[in-house]
Amino acid sequence: MNSTLPEAVQRAIGVTKKRRIEVTARDINRFAQAIGEMNPIHCDQDHARSSRYGGIVAPPLFCQTLTYEDASPDQLPADGSPLEIAVPVPAMRAVGGGSEYTIHRLVRAGDVIEIKSTLKDVHTKQGRSGLLYILVVETEFTDSDGRPVATELATYIKRA
């Protein structure tokens, strides 16, 4: 943690929010369409039933659909960026930096997934156009038995 960060930012680091969402076959189908993945294992029940999975499974990074809170538009920052990175650093323009994703198992229709999101770190870095604020958000996805499904460590960059 950087002690030069505004106090409100330092307070936000380490705060965890939890939610629970039930996944449907429709969610999986829509996600597969959005990423351009046409494998019938994600949308065709008959095909999926005869596969080694025995039913529809989601593409590996499906939990991305569960990452952001279902916040209403008036709760979001003016630029519409996710609440998960709405911390008061003196920089407003945000872009995605990178991601580290661990996949424990593929999501299935009917899974109830618990989502635990934590702002793990905020630090600064000198960029070509000025000071950059690097935000690291950890999201853990577990099933209703408490078993891990996936974990993501996502990095966002905010600049003035």
Partner: peptide, 16 residues
Amino acid sequence: TQIFMFSAVTWNRHHI
């Protein structure tokens, strides 16, 4: 269209 669809399924309303 794909970028729009991906924003929709991930509920990402970021205007960029």
